[in-house]
């Protein structure tokens, strides 16, 4: 069996199982409402027709997979990308603040790690605060950040990006502290025998040694950034973005819209994580890593 076939069959089996369970769930959750509707109208459809009705409600409790698929397809491919109904437009709005926040978070995380590895006082004092920062629920913190920044006149992309930064610097900081400390004792001793400065040891030894750790933590960080951007869109009453789409959907019980926004979010997340992983592989290959 080829590697593709090895993976394809198990993955498809799981997917089919999930879709089947979803359909059964959609029927079970939508049936009571449909039954009431039919009673009031005095209709008594047969079983097959009734199942069809539970799968075609405009505002179902749980939309059926094909309803989400159709909605997703229409709003992704059949609309102008500048239209407020286009998922591409909303995904782009969320993506731009995700990427900005991720860039800030990565830079901040690396800076914190460099500080912790080189300054004893920071090593002793900073880590507990960093960990504490992540124990505060982002849902509680996000509105405060948005409101405080709006009060000083900062609105739009930046406040959302800062929430992404808040979530994404943490894995990068933790991973890079480990990465910058990953060189073995003999390699550090070697640099000492050359009378190398701290800067030379950093650029020639610590930083290259930390690259695999950086990409592993950036994978976690970019997913966290996306969550941050979506959460950041919820309290702003933002007009655009996947978060705004979710919020509007919940206001107006547009469950199908909500689900297709979720699908769009997952696709963006998968693409981002894959892109970081692929960049990591390219960089590591360029740095002479043994091909896996």
């Amino acid at each position: 069996m080829t590697g593709l076939g090895d993976r394809f069959i198990p993955v498809m089996t799981i997917l089919l199982g999930i879709v089947a369970a979803w359909y059964i769930g959609a029927y079970a959750l939508n049936a009571p409402f449909q039954r009431g509707l039919n009673e009031r109208a005095g209709e008594t459809p047969g079983f097959v027709e009734f199942v069809g009705q539970t799968m075609s409600q405009p505002k179902p409790t749980l939309p059926a997979p094909h309803q989400v698929a159709v909605n997703f397809f229409e709003n992704t491919f059949l609309r102008s990308v500048t239209s407020a109904r286009s998922l591409v437009y909303h995904a782009w709005v969320t993506l731009s603040s995700t990427l900005l926040g991720f860039a800030f978070g990565t830079v901040l995380g690396i800076a914190i790690a460099v500080g912790i590895v080189h300054v004893l006082a920071l090593d002793r004092s900073l880590m507990p605060w960093i960990i504490a920062s992540q124990t505060i629920p982002i849902l509680a913190l996000a509105p405060m950040i948005i409101v405080v920044l709006a009060a000083v006149g900062i609105t739009g992309l930046l406040p959302k990006a800062l929430i992404s930064t808040y979530l994404s610097f943490f894995p990068v900081a933790v991973g890079m502290v480990k990465g910058l400390r990953s060189p073995e004792a003999i390699n550090l001793d070697l640099m000492r025998t050359y009378n190398a400065s701290k800067a030379e040891t950093f650029w020639k030894l610590r930083l290259p040694a930390s690259v695999p750790f950086l990409f592993a933590s950036m994978k976690v960080a970019i997913a966290a950034s996306l969550v941050g951007a979506i959460v950041g869109e919820l309290p702003t009453g933002a007009a655009a973005g996947i978060g705004a789409k979710l919020l509007n959907g919940s206001y107006y019980s547009q469950t199908i819209d909500m689900f297709s926004a979720l699908v769009a979010g997952s696709i963006v997340a998968a693409l981002l994580v894959t892109a970081v992983g692929a960049t990591g592989r390219v960089v590591e290959r360029a740095m002479g890593a043994r091909p896996a």
């Binding site: 003999i186 390699n187 001793d189 070697l190 040694a209 690259v211 002479g288 890593a289």
Partner: peptide
């Protein structure tokens, strides 16, 4: 002597940097 780079040191393991040719 170390600051004057008076000696070369060979360790138990080669300790080559894997990202350098």
């Amino acid at each position: 002597a170390r600051k004057a780079r008076a000696y070369g040191y060979v360790f138990q393991a080669a300790g080559l940097f894997p990202w350098r040719t």
